[in-house]
Every structure is written in structure tokens, then in C-alpha cells.
Write a protein that binds this DNA or RNA. Structure first.
Length: 571
RNA sequence: GGGCCUGUAGCUCAAUGGUUAGAGCAGGGCGCUCAUAACGCCUUGGUUGGGGGUUCGAAUCCCUCCGGGCCUACCA
């Protein structure tokens, strides 16, 4: 097989707090699924993610925690890194958008864009809060809606009547941070990225991507063509914490004290993260992944993200890369996801509603979550987490279909032949028939995984597990053992060999369990090419151990407890 | 307001305009006894949100109405 090279990035999670299961299934988890699959197929993979650390919310969260921003971010990065590890997210590097590498690279891109005439200065007025000592983004200002009278209307939009607002329109405006009404419109100068100049180029590029998910292209087209078309975008902010506005390593006259906007520097971190990966001693050459003049021409680059991130990845970031005039690698495929809702509503951090990543790992192993989330990934529309559905899927798919299969095979063998692959007999028509079915299904599974059809992949994998139980029922080694022990030995040898096969195929979904299965069989993972051959990996005499039950069922009591615990404070 | 997505079995979801709309779960029946009372086989269940249209043929394309969701450029 040709060795391909896959660059894979997950949308980088914001530093402000621990993410919920909806965030996880929208980017990091499917990205990990794809990365593990491509590695399993023997391809070269660079899988990158990072924390997105700049912006107003980070500064406010640090202030609330009573810590300097750099310290707060460093701590939260560690927290997120540990949780990611707990979920088995197999990043080659988990970087930080505040890294020195990203500072240099972001300033470099700004210089190139400036040289190419794609940056202009704009003088504008923005709401300034004297009490808070800072400019406030529109949504940090609340007041009474001039249209409907709603008293908690945000400066960008009224949550009650959904009309778009300008903060100056609000009646009795005040800061949501301090409550202060001491606000004024103050003049400030900012840099804008001239995306509008690149509209045609971007549109032609989007149009060429006919295989992208509708969700991705429809959002991109909307931004390209809505109203007056693609608008130039401010890429600087008046904040303390961020990447100082410079042209390369030179000062930018008139922009002292300002930083780049987080949505300018965050995607650049995808590249800087590869440099961090090298500087951390994990890799030798980042350019062969990112520079088409240094070998990245044969790289396939895939991005994973929730739908809210699509405009930045389809338009702003490509504009940055193309506008630089340098040979950077552009994304080849953007896989986007809808949202996961929680039990009839949205996940809510402020109301403590829904399950967050740290809590999930406290109550159940990562594979339980990975399986449910991936097999219900919100691909075609928003999806919904309910505890009943979660309980049913985990108990049926994992415990009954896969876990019990491994249990019944290994325990039967131990009681009749000992913990060693039995000798005798040969495969017949039944085994041939199973090999044919598995071959068909595994090739279909590979097709779905290549296409990043997550739910279809999960469905096919489950059918592959079911085939093992069907075989046992038909072969009935417990019956043949009485008449023809050699035949039973061949049957159980065949069934035992399904275990490492299943482990290899299942590893992208449930890596921890897959490892347990392989360790019990004392084998390494090996992606099956020829299935008949793959089922000869454990010959007669090969020792194994009966593993503990792979999955515990979720009891009704536990489910009800969790349902209560994570319901949050409703209204 | 505008745009996009979505509505299919009790539940979660499939189905390049082409046989009788399919899976899993749940429900019912039978079988098996190796296994975590697990597994296998069979089976009930549909006016594809409503109405109209195009077509030899519509879940699929068009119009309209109803419901759900998302986005709408200063949260990230």
C-alpha cells in the first residue's frame, strides 16, 4: 500500500474552562478517530491541537480566578491536556496559541499581508468602560432593547426579539462585567484584513471543493455572498493579553499597545503548533507538513470543527494563507459538525446543565463516551444526548455484543482447552462464509472511515462484532465438542482469532478496550488486509489470558442518579 | 426580516428519481445454554409533517403551509 501523509487538526478549544461533550464530539473526538484510523492503516499522521488562549473572555476568567492571565492560561492548558489524555485524544502535540512560535508566525503573516496591500487601518469608535478600564465587545454590554423593551438585551443582539443591535442603541447600557454605566464611545484605530479583495479567489476555491459536507460549503457561500459580499474584518483588539501587533519583528507605528484578534492568531497556531512539536523534540521537520516548497505537496490536510467555526476556516484563514503569497499548505477537506444538545435543551456552563469532560471521566471510562458520542455524531443535523439512549447503546453495543463475545469465547476455551489456542481440525464452509462476510463488511468500514462518515462507520463496526456472535451460534462449539473435539477446537481457534481482528478495527473508536483485548491475546494491532490471513495470527499453541469483562453495564439506579446530578438548575 | 439545515416505525437513524421505504434499540414469538439473563432466528410496527404540482415512476425535484434547529460578521 502506498504510504500517505495526513495532516489533521482539530478546532482548538478555548482556554476558558472545561469543555462539554458537545464540544468534544464536534471536533477533537472525530479528529482523533480519523487520526487513529489513518495511523492504523500504516499512514504517516501529524495530528495537532492546541488551546486558544487570547481574547476578552480569557482575561476576565483570569481576573475572576484572581490570577495573572499567563498563569491562569498555563494552568488551564494543563487541565485541558490531562483531560484530553484521559479521553485518549492522540495529539502528536497539544500546543498553545500563546506560544513564542505563534507570536513570531502571526507577526510574520501580518507583515506579508501588509506588504501585499491586504491590510488597511480603520479608525472607529467603540464602547469603553472607564470602571473596567477596557474596551468592551458588544455582547459585554447590556441594556434595555429599544425595539421590545427587554431589559437584558445584549449589545449585539436582543435575546428576546432576536433583532440585531448596536450597543449605542441600548437604553440604560451597562457593563456586564462591573455593572458600571460609566460608558463612552471612544475612538480607536484597528487593522482590517482586506478579505473582500480576495472574494473571487476564495469563492473559486470553495467551488472547487465539491466533496465537502453541505454544512461546510453552505456556510462559506453564505458569508461570501450575503449582503454586500465578503466583508473586511478587524484583526486587532485593544487588550493586554495577546500577540503584540508588529510587522514581523518591527514595530507597527500607531498600533502600540494593541494585540492581534484571537481569530487571526488562532488558526495560525495550527502551523505554529507543528513548530512547537519540533521544538519539543517530538519531530524533526515541520516544513514538510506545511510548506509546499518543502515537501507538503503530497500531504492531505483535514480539519475538524463545529459549525460555528466554519467561517474562520473556510474564509479568514485561507485569506491569510493565500494573501501571504507564500507556499503554505491549504486545507483539503473540512469536516464540520452540528451541535449536540443535552436532554431536550442546550448544554449550559452557567447553569451546570449537561456533562462536561472532567465529569464524564469521573463516572465512566473514556471508551463508553467515545463509542456513544461517535456513533451518534451530529453529522446531518443537531443530535441529542439522553441518558436512556446512552445507557441502551453502551449496554447493548459494548457490553452485550462486543464484551460478551470476548467473554464467551475466552471462557469457553479456558474451560475446555485451557488458556492456549487449541490445536486440531480445519476451517470449513462456515468459516469461509464468515470470512466472506467480514471481508465485505471490513472493506465497507474502510470506505466509510476514509470518507469520514462517522455514524456509518460505527454501524458497520457493530455489524462486524455481531458477525462473531452469529458464527458462534451457528458453529455451536459447545455442541460439537461432545461429538468431535477437533472440530470444536478449530471453531474456537477461529473465534479467538476474531478478537485481535476486532481490536485492530475497533481501536479508533475504543482505543483503551482495544489495547486490553490485544494484551489479553498477547498480540500487537495489525490492520487486516486479507481477512483469511488475518485470522491465522494466533496459531495453535499461542497463549492468551481471559480478560476481565470489557464493559460493565450501566444500571438503572446509576442512570437516574446521573440524570439528577447533571440536570442543572432549570430556569 | 434574510439565508441554510431538518421533519421517515414508539426511540435513534438509513435510503445516486427506479422492485414491496430499510437497520439498531424497544415490543411479541421461537431457539440455544459457551457467555455479563448474555447470544441467534423469526416477527409486529409507516398516509415518509399537511396539502398541491412535475414525472411512466417522488421520502427524493418544484410550490405552499406547519413544526424543530442553526447562522446573520465585536463571544470564541
Amino acid at each position: 500500500m502506498d504510504m500517505a501523509r495526513h495532516l489533521i487538526t482539530s478546532a482548538i478549544p478555548y482556554i476558558n474552562g472545561i469543555k462539554h461533550l458537545g464540544n468534544l464530539v464536534g471536533s477533537q473526538l472525530p479528529a482523533d478517530l480519523f487520526a487513529r484510523y489513518q495511523r492504523g492503516r500504516g499512514h504517516e499522521v501529524l495530528f495537532l491541537c492546541a488551546t486558544d488562549e487570547h481574547g476578552t473572555p480569557a482575561e476576565l476568567a483570569a481576573a475572576k480566578a484572581g490570577k495573572p492571565v499567563p498563569e491562569y492560561c498555563a494552568e488551564m492548558h494543563q487541565v485541558q491536556a490531562r483531560i484530553a489524555e484521559g479521553f485518549g485524544l492522540s495529539f502528536d502535540h497539544f500546543g498553545r496559541s500563546s506560544s513564542p512560535e505563534n507570536h513570531r508566525l502571526t507577526q510574520h503573516f501580518a507583515a506579508k499581508l501588509y506588504e501585499n496591500g491586504l491590510i488597511r487601518e480603520v479608525s472607529e469608535t467603540q464602547m469603553y468602560s472607564r470602571a473596567d478600564g477596557r474596551f468592551l465587545p458588544d455582547r459585554y454590554i447590556e441594556g434595555t432593547c429599544p425595539n421590545c423593551g427587554f431589559e437584558s438585551a445584549r449589545g449585539d443582539q436582543c435575546d428576546n426579539c432576536t433583532k440585531q443591535l448596536d450597543p449605542v442603541d441600548l437604553i440604560n447600557p451597562h457593563s456586564t462585567i462591573s455593572g458600571s454605566t460609566d460608558l463612552e464611545m471612544r475612538e480607536t484605530k484597528h487593522l482590517y484584513l482586506c478579505q473582500s479583495q480576495m472574494k473571487d479567489e476564495l469563492e473559486a476555491w470553495i467551488d472547487s471543493k465539491t466533496d465537502w459536507p453541505v454544512l461546510t460549503t453552505s456556510i462559506a457561500k453564505k458569508w461570501l455572498n450575503d449582503g454586500d459580499g465578503l466583508q473586511d474584518r478587524g484583526i486587532t483588539r485593544d487588550l493586554d493579553w495577546g500577540i503584540p501587533v508588529k510587522r514581523g519583528d518591527k514595530d507597527w507605528p500607531g498600533m502600540e499597545g494593541k494585540v492581534f484578534y484571537v481569530w487571526f492568531d488562532a488558526p495560525i497556531e495550527y502551523i505554529a503548533c507543528a513548530q512547537e512539536w519540533v521544538n519539543a523534540g517530538k519531530g524533526g521537520d515541520w516544513a514538510r507538513w506545511w510548506r509546499t516548497d518543502a515537501g507538503a505537496g503530497d500531504v492531505t490536510y483535514t480539519q475538524f470543527m463545529g459549525k460555528d467555526n466554519v467561517p474562520f476556516h473556510t474564509l479568514s484563514f485561507p485569506a491569510t494563507i493565500l494573501g501571504s503569497g507564500e507556499p503554505w499548505k491549504l486545507v483539503d477537506y473540512i469536516k464540520s459538525f452540528n451541535y449536540l444538545n443535552y436532554d431536550g435543551g442546550q448544554f449550559s456552563t452557567s447553569r451546570g446543565r449537561g456533562v462536561f469532560m472532567d465529569q464524564a471521566l469521573e463516572i465512566l471510562p473514556a471508551d463508553y463516551w467515545r463509542w456513544w458520542l461517535l456513533s451518534h455524531a451530529p453529522e446531518s443535523s443537531d443530535a441529542e444526548f439522553t441518558w436512556e439512549n446512552f445507557q441502551a447503546s453502551v449496554n447493548k453495543d459494548l457490553a452485550d455484543v462486543l464484551g460478551n463475545f470476548v467473554s464467551r469465547v475466552t471462557k469457553f476455551c479456558r474451560s475446555k482447552f485451557g488458556e492456549v489456542v487449541p490445536e486440531g481440525g480445519a476451517w470449513g464452509a462456515q468459516e469461509k462464509s464468515v470470512i466472506d462476510e467480514l471481508t465485505t463488511r471490513i472493506r465497507a468500514y474502510e470506505g466509510h472511515m476514509e470518507a469520514m462518515e462517522v455514524r456509518k462507520s460505527a454501524g458497520e463496526l457493530r455489524a462486524i462484532w455481531v458477525a462473531g456472535n452469529e458464527y458462534l451460534q451457528e458453529a455451536a462449539p459447545w455442541a460439537t465438542f461432545k461429538e468431535d473435539p477437533a472440530r470444536a477446537a478449530a471453531q474456537i481457534r477461529f473465534a479467538l482469532n476474531l478478537i485481535p481482528l476486532y481490536a485492530a478495527l475497533s481501536a479508533p473508536f475504543i482505543p483503551f478496550t482495544a489495547r486490553t483485548m490485544l494484551e489479553a491475546m498477547t498480540l500487537d494491532a495489525d490492520w487486516p488486509g486479507d481477512i483469511a490471513q488475518a485470522l491465522e495470527r494466533m496459531p495453535a499453541g499461542h497463549g492468551f489470558a481471559v480478560p476481565d469483562n470489557l464493559f460493565a453495564k450501566i444500571a438503572d439506579d446509576s442512570r437516574e442518579d446521573w440524570q439528577q446530578r447533571f440536570a442543572g438548575t432549570r430556569d
